[in-house]
Amino acid sequence: MNLRSFLYKNSTQIMVWFIIVILFVWVLFPLIWTFLSTFKQPLEVYDTSSFLPKEWSLSNYHEVVSDDNFFRFFINSLFITTVSTILAIVCSVLGGYAFARYAFRFRHILLLILLVPRIIPRASLTVPLYMGFAELGLLNSYTALIISYTATAVPMGVWIMSGFFKGVPKALEEAAIVDGARPWQLMWYVLIPITLPGILTVSIFSIREGWNEFPFVLTLTTSTEMRTLPYQLYMLSDSMGIQNWPLVNTFSLMTIIPILIVYLMFEKKVVNGIVSGSVK
């Protein structure tokens, strides 16, 4: 086989790989510098001579982990994210099922209401939420954060789950009912296993929401004890002193790692979840 005919035959795949390489570089390029900088000294990031660190030192990682508060903030983030994700899943499953299976009055209005949160800038919600939670005496509590994070995750979740439930053949449900399954059995044994990829997708989006959220935690909490990882990241970048970028970057990479691990664990299901869920 000569080169020409090889190129001709495989022209599509060559094009595809060309684009994939671009995609690869595009996604990872910004991350590379950040990763390299985590081994540097504070002022070394301004050094133009080389982007490789002079010395591969793990001191920044050590400093982040050895901070007593890191563990505390990590637990805060973990707790808030976990609870709000569980709540978001429950709401999304129920709401998604309603939209997928029932025709009812106000369906369109309710769907529209679900869209609204996407169109308001997050920053402008902080003031009203503060006033609301102050009224309820919930400032400086996990509850306030959990409620806010759940609320921001639910609309997307309902949308995704409704797509999944539409993909479940109605006949399957009817068969289960004929077999005498009760509604909760139907949900638990039939619908949930089938729509598990959808649930995982909702979880990832909700985890992302809770894990990275910053404006709400900034306004709704004042106590140092209540800080989450993104808040601490903000506190680290201090414009009044010499900004320790390597430390900031180390911290932010370390906050990305847990969510990346979760994502990579379920990556196949999640991506297929988005991919198959939203078609219907």
């Binding site: 995609l23 690869f24 996604v27 990872l28 910004p30 991350l31 950040t34 990832i204 992302r208 894990w211 990275n212 910053f214 993104p230 990241l233 903000y234 970048s237 970057n249 932010s252 990479l253 906050t255 990305i256 969510i259 990346l260 994502y263 990556e267 999640v270 991506v271």
Partner: peptide, 12 residues
């Protein structure tokens, strides 16, 4: 790999 940027926080 494609979804990675979406998971990163805005500040980062």
């Amino acid at each position: 790999l494609t979804l990675i940027p979406y998971l990163i926080s805005g500040i980062a």
